[in-house]
């Protein structure tokens, strides 16, 4: 990871971060998949206790940016990330940073619900168990219950915790995945089109949930639905062809965007 070349820029960054209370910051982030460049010098921050929506047409790099935030790009053969990414002002690509620990702090919910083919209980308990968050079975039970509560799933599954997680409906599976992410007490939760495989009712439940989670977590959500971005997020970032077009308050973005491309996209003229 190239360190910031000039100290002034770093100072400016720190200053801005202190002002607006950023949880995570990406500075000049570029991503290459082999020869192909997927992101071009993106500068974008994730604020505390805020839902940030990433919008833009397919293939514009939303997921790519999201995956930089918990280094899931590391798992892709040939992917290279340049620029600076910080969590609480610490470079997350620093060699000293343990990627496993990072991913426990920055959780992820995927596009397709992907519960483990294990029991509901095991799905939620897995994270806390490998991170040693519970010292006893009772404590683990407590974490599982609390996580399922937070994901709004507890009342539906409390009588069948030992049944397979894959036997739940799509919406329940996605909330189970959210419970699984929440169980390791992350600080940031990344969601990549979490509702794209769900029906409208399940979508509404998940959106409600995102709203509640915002009290305790910083959330970044990729979405294809403008309405969803408008409903759940406070900040919106618009991507186009690997570039960050603009980033602003959601209200402002949807009523009075500064960039023509954002306007066109929101009006449904492309994408």
């Amino acid at each position: 990871m190239n360190m910031l070349s000039d100290a002034a820029a770093e100072k400016a960054l720190v200053k801005k971060m202190n002002e607006v209370n950023y949880k995570m910051v990406g500075k000049d982030v570029s991503v290459y998949y082999g020869e192909k460049r997927a992101l071009f010098d993106v500068n974008l921050g994730v604020r505390n206790n805020t839902v940030t929506a990433l919008i833009g047409p397919s293939g514009c790099g939303k997921s790519t940016f999201l995956r930089c935030l918990n280094r899931m790009n590391d798992t892709i053969q040939g992917a290279k990330v340049t620029g600076l990414l910080t969590l609480d002002s610490k470079d997350i690509y620093d060699p000293d940073i343990d990627v496993v620990e990072l991913r426990a702090r920055v959780g992820m919910v995927f596009q397709k619900p992907n519960p483990f083919p294990k029991s509901i209980y095991e799905n939620v308990a897995y994270g806390p168990r490998i991170h040693g968050l519970a010292r006893s079975k009772a404590e683990l039970d407590q974490i599982v219950e609390a996580s399922l509560q937070k994901a709004g799933l507890w009342s539906e599954v409390k009588d069948r915790l030992q049944e397979s997680g894959t036997g739940l409906s799509g919406g329940q599976q996605q909330r189970l995945c959210i419970a699984r992410a929440v169980a390791v007490s992350p600080e940031v939760i990344l969601m990549d089109e979490p509702c794209s495989a769900l029906d409208p009712i399940a979508t509404a439940r998940v959106e409600e949930l995102i709203h509640e989670l915002r009290a305790n977590y910083s959330i970044v959500i990729v979405t294809h639905s403008m309405q969803q971005a408008a409903r759940v997020s406070q900040r919106t970032a618009m991507f186009h062809l690997g570039n960050l077009v603009e980033e602003d308050d959601t209200d402002k973005m949807f009523t009075n965007p500064s960039d023509q491309r954002t306007q066109d996209y929101i009006m449904g003229r492309f994408g």
């Binding site: 918990n70 496993v100 620990e101 919910v109 397709k112 483990f116 897995y126 991170h131 699984r180 992410a181």
Partner: peptide, 27 residues
Amino acid sequence: VPPSIRDAALGVGASKMQAIFHHVVPL
């Protein structure tokens, strides 16, 4: 074994070894 299972395990902070031996190999 679907890659989504690996992603799920890595996403909650399992190491590569843990993802493989806890999830991929059993499947």
